[in-house]
Simulated assay, not measured.
Amino acid sequence: MQLNKILKCLSLILVFLLLVGCQSKKETTLLFVGSFTDKKPGEGIHVFEFNNETGEASLKFTLDSVTNTSFLKLSNNGKYLYSVMDSQMPYHGKIAAFVVDSINGKLDLINIQDCGGLNPAHIDIDKTGKFLASSQYSDGSLSLFKINKDGSLKPHSQVLRFKDSSVIKERQEASHIHSSNFSPDNEFLFAHDLGADKIRGFSFNSNTKDSLLNNENQIKMKPGSGPRHFAFHPNGKFGYSIAELSGKLTAFNFRNGDLEYVEDYQSYQKHQNIYRAADVHISPDGKFLYASNRGPEEDSISIFSINPENGTLTLIEHERTYGEHPRNFAIDPSGEFLLVANQFTNNIIVFRRDIKTGKLSKLNQEIVVKNPSSLQMRTYDVSL
């Protein structure tokens, strides 16, 4: 009798496990949009649910009463979102940490820390997910933070300040750190100084107690180039800098902790007296590179193929952005869509991406957000 009861219980458990195993996996892709708020409290962050089949987006959440949340960065595991706050203000900016409610598409504030400088413009997170670097444009500073297990930020452990200049007086009168990137091996951090025409490399060890940035190595860019953003190739061997003031892309080999120059490429289609190149990203498969060009006469995405052997680029074409001032753009996790944030026309344009050719096709969907300046995307498993 006792044996029959045990067998019956085991059968029920087996049926339950089979039912659970047969449930289809449910996923949702979230789009996080950071915006400038005209230097006053306003709607700074929007969260949308993105349809991976149609390219449509539906608003799930809006964070109000924040100022100039102009750059966002998701944690490596997608559980937390970090945002600059009070960028372009005459006082120290801040970095805010949020926990992501992926089921409901909402954000909950964890904490806020002073960034240690003026006008935070960019955030990057190291490969362990334990450290965050913040780049401050206006006073040319670079800050390092420790990330706690709950996603919160400790006060900055290090702030480096740079005093330098270059040849374009109205834009390069001082150092302007526009972004920084941890290397694929996580042993270095490269900071891009638009004001000094330099990429500043630092050694970084995430396993030490202090984990500070040390041993600066200056990589000199061409005078008047203005290095702004950077992307490492998924293979960890190549890197690409986009220079705002010259409108050019520079390909590098990443070897032994150093960036070795390969070649320059013009990102704009047309010659201009003023360039405002902005952002650069590589497709998930590593075959294509995309860059954004923000006027004044051309608002476009340049598309290049990447030679897998040596990292050199070949221009495919230019695609207009159907809006003005494409400050930032993002490729969705599937690699099938590319979204462009046109800051001055308050719209985000959705393109379908041809995975084989790299070319873009505009969809009819358009996401309306005031002053969009930063995009992050992540696909979450929301199976119950």
Rank of each mutant, 00 (worst) to 15 (best):
S300R: 02
D126C: 11
V350A: 04
Y380G: 09
D381V: 07
T250P: 05
E53C: 04
Q343L: 10
G55A: 09
N214D: 12
G247M: 01
R352L: 02
H281M: 13
E187I: 10
P223E: 12
S135V: 05
L63G: 01
R171F: 00
C22K: 08
T345K: 08
S241H: 05
T128Q: 13
N214F: 09
E53A: 05
S141I: 03
G236E: 11
F304N: 03
S102W: 01
S70L: 09
E366Q: 09
R378I: 01
A174D: 15
K359C: 12
A277F: 00
I125K: 01
F190H: 04
N273S: 14
P333D: 06
F344I: 12
G236D: 11
H156Q: 12
E336Q: 14
E366L: 15
K8T: 15
F202H: 02
E260V: 08
G21M: 11
L72S: 00
L142P: 01
N4V: 02
D264N: 06
F98W: 08
T314S: 15
E263N: 12
K5F: 14
M89Q: 11
C9S: 15
G140C: 10
A133C: 07
Q218A: 11
K169Q: 07
G239L: 03
N310H: 10
S292F: 02
E170K: 00
N310C: 09
G224I: 00
T357R: 08
E317Y: 09
L213R: 06
N148M: 14
P284D: 13
P227F: 04
F32N: 01
F204S: 01
E263W: 07
G311P: 06
N307R: 13
I355E: 05
P155Q: 12
T62E: 02
N293W: 02
S334E: 09
H325Y: 06
N186A: 12
F252H: 01
P223D: 11
G295Q: 03
D101I: 02
K356Y: 03
Q136C: 08
L245G: 02
K362N: 05
G335Y: 14
E216K: 12
I13Y: 13
L212C: 13
G323E: 06
S361R: 03
T379R: 06
L144A: 14
D185H: 11
T312P: 10
Y322V: 09
F232R: 00
N253R: 13
L10E: 14
Q2I: 12
N119H: 10
N104I: 01
Q2M: 14
N52H: 06
T28I: 08
N4S: 09
